[in-house]
Nucleic acid binder design. Structure first.
Lengths: 231, 231
DNA sequence: CAGTGGTCTAGACCACTGA
DNA sequence: CAGTGGTCTAGACCACTGA
């Protein structure tokens, strides 16, 4: 398990930056100097520094050189697994029950002016309500969903398998259940819930808007940040 | 603004994969074939495919070839900005009040067996409580915090500027405020709150553990997924 | 054991931009 | 306008592994 030369150059500068030896804003040696230090070609140096650029640790400016980036907003990797898979992974039985399905013209939001399928349903884990969701799916972008059997598979799972999205926005916040939501989730009105609102696109084309409301005691999100990325 | 050749190769395969033209599990052309298709050298092909590997779209297996990865868990980019900066960005006045500061031996958790600084305080936006936090900071890893002026700057902001972490785990969930928490946040007991628990490391060394409880109406997290990464 | 990807070299021409 | 990074070439040797 010998480490490739380019990888060891990358690690060397990553270590110097994370340890503070190379402070934010300070300048790295030029590619020529790094070539001399490690006795390698310029392509090898360039690949190593490109990886650090992608990772957001350094910034390369022509004529000026390569610099350690000042500490920014921390970006973490948030796992958004399929809900059915996540429930199954906990050893619980997953079930979805659809209680609304109609076509309509959407008035506002990112699907405004389009015909969409309006879906509502409840996710269960071991027979207990885990979450309710309310979803609009663009019929122009996903005509096949008109014929999908959504009793057998939740709309989210169906979409995941049939329509890969390329872009998504997600809002995550806490809220109290309103009376109707509380009833559907078997909670008291005002009980704390985790709410996830997501809009997705494939290219420029809107695919779906969904609002999911989770029973607070049954669900959490996990995010990681680290050299290994997601784990 | 001409697109470099390697980048256009990358985009070409990204498009074919996202559109479904190259289905999950299917095999890409060999490097030799791609060289012929685009009339370029092998290094250029290799760089383009490496970028798609890093992005998690393809997998490269020696002797076997390059394959489209089967749909996995969706990983989104979660922005974790500094709280003070986030409040300021909304045009509100940010203030932090420290109401606990003592040294102690930690009994459990990822700092177990270490001496740590125990900090508790409240974050305010325009004078209204936004969040409370309870934090342990390892004195072995961060001796300088013993002398830090944490009345002027929240512990999180101080740590962000002084001790870059390299690894972090974050849990995000909704919960009801207990009576003491509700009192500190100006809420009724049981009111919905967003809770964020985070543990951070620098390399193998634990840095800090923090639990932050946010007033539901005042805070949300935002995550993005897309070709541009964070936006 | 042959075909695939992994990595590296020694060079080249170019675009950009700050000294 | 000179020094820096951006990109690319045409080749090389190697490690791995599945046909």
């Amino acid at each position: 398990m010998t480490v490739p030369l380019g990888e060891s150059i990358r690690q060397s500068f990553e270590r110097r930056i994370l340890s503070g030896e190379l402070a934010p804003g300070s300048r790295l040696p030029t590619e020529q100097e790094i070539m001399a230090e490690f006795g390698c070609s310029r392509m090898t140096v360039s690949k190593a520094l490109s990886a650090l650029t992608t990772a957001g640790l350094i910034e390369r400016r022509k004529r000026a050189g390569t610099f350690v980036v000042r500490p920014r907003v921390h970006a973490m990797v948030l796992e958004v697994p399929d809900l059915a898979a996540q429930v199954a992974a906990r050893g619980q039985a997953y079930r979805f029950r659809l209680h609304r399905r109609n076509e309509e013209m959407v008035q506002d939001g990112h699907l405004a002016g389009q015909r969409a399928l309006h879906l509502g349903g409840t996710h269960f884990a071991d027979g207990e309500p885990l979450a309710i969701e309310d979803r609009l799916v663009s019929l122009a972008a996903v005509p096949a969903i008109a014929d999908a059997d959504l009793a057998a598979e939740s709309p989210g799972t169906w979409l995941l398998h049939h329509v890969p999205w390329t872009e998504a926005d997600t809002r995550i916040f806490a809220t109290g259940a309103n009376p109707a939501e509380a009833e559907a989730l078997g909670l008291n009105p005002g009980a704390p819930c985790l709410c996830i609102e997501r809009r997705t696109w494939r290219g420029d084309e809107p695919i779906t808007t969904v609002r999911q409301l989770f029973v607070a005691s049954g669900y959490e999100l996990v995010a990681h940040f680290g050299p290994g990325g997601a784990s």
